[in-house]
Computed example of a mutant assay.
Amino acid sequence: MIALPPTLAGHRIVPVLVIDDAGFAVDAAAALAAGGIGCVEITLRTPAALVAITAVADAGTTLVGVGTVTTPDDVARAADAGARFVITPGVDRDVIEACLERGLDVLPGAATATDVMTVMRTGLRAVKLFPADLLGGVDMVAALAGPFPGVAFVPSGGVSPLNLGAYLGHPNVPAVSGSWMASRQLLASRDVASIERLSREATSAAGAA
């Protein structure tokens, strides 16, 4: 199987959390972990994101990273908050360089062959395929894996229990990214039981893929 960046190695599911209440971040991460998911991407889409990252990092039980990173300043703030990895929606060489300078693994978002080539020129060999479902899903992975057989693709955007197995069944897909097991609604309602149940179901499906 094609490898992920070292920090994310072994993680088959990267849950995407949009946190409005930083006070629930640690409990949410614990519910994901109870369901077998040991990492979390907290997006910079809300004012609570950086506080949530610090809370999960300080708890020390879950690998925490940051998503929706679009500027080098985002990288600096997230690194200072305790993020261990960075995921971006697109390719920006300044952002990639900022991550590497801070010693952070980075998974740039890619939507085209040109994006993949740009990422490869930085020395990286793994990308987030985004928005995966709108780009063609598994067929798009297969199309890009042809000219880029050594690149790992992590589909994000439209990934669900219905297509998780198909994605993970492709040899160039070591992991998938999604929010269904800890949606914004579940986080807002502090529904730890549902987060744990959906995480366990996702982990089981990933194991069977």
Rank of each mutant, 00 (worst) to 15 (best):
I37D: 00
A193C: 12
R102P: 04
L198W: 07
G157Y: 11
K128M: 00
I87Q: 05
S156N: 03
P108V: 10
G123C: 04
A166S: 15
E97F: 08
M140N: 13
A206C: 13
G136V: 07
R12P: 05
I2N: 15
V138W: 05
C39Y: 07
T118F: 08
H11S: 09
A166M: 14
A182V: 12
G65F: 01
L63H: 02
V14I: 15
T203G: 14
D191Q: 01
F148I: 07
V69F: 08
A78V: 06
G90R: 10
M117W: 11
V91G: 01
G67I: 02
S183G: 09
M181K: 04
I53W: 00
R102F: 03
T43Y: 08
D74R: 09
Y167E: 00
A175F: 02
D115R: 01
C99W: 13
L44E: 08
A25E: 01
A76N: 07
P6W: 02
L129W: 10
V154Y: 10
P72E: 14
L164I: 04
A79H: 14
A31R: 03
P72M: 15
A132D: 11
S189K: 14
P108L: 05
R184F: 06
A152F: 11
L44N: 08
A81P: 06
L8A: 10
C39T: 15
T43I: 11
P131A: 08
D115E: 00
V51N: 14
R77C: 14
N172T: 10
T203Y: 04
G146F: 10
T88M: 07
S199E: 01
G157W: 11
P131H: 12
A30I: 00
V26P: 00
L144R: 00
Q185F: 02
A34P: 00
R200L: 13
W180Q: 04
P161I: 13
L168Y: 06
V176S: 09
A28F: 00
E97N: 13
R184D: 04
G178V: 02
G109L: 12
G10D: 07
L162G: 10
T203H: 11
V141L: 05
A205T: 11
P15W: 13
A25H: 02
V127W: 06
I87A: 12
T7D: 02
S177L: 03
L4V: 07
D20Q: 08
S204V: 13
A52T: 09
T43F: 05
A33T: 13
G169V: 06
D74P: 09
G82K: 05
I42A: 02
T70L: 15
P174R: 05
V151Y: 10
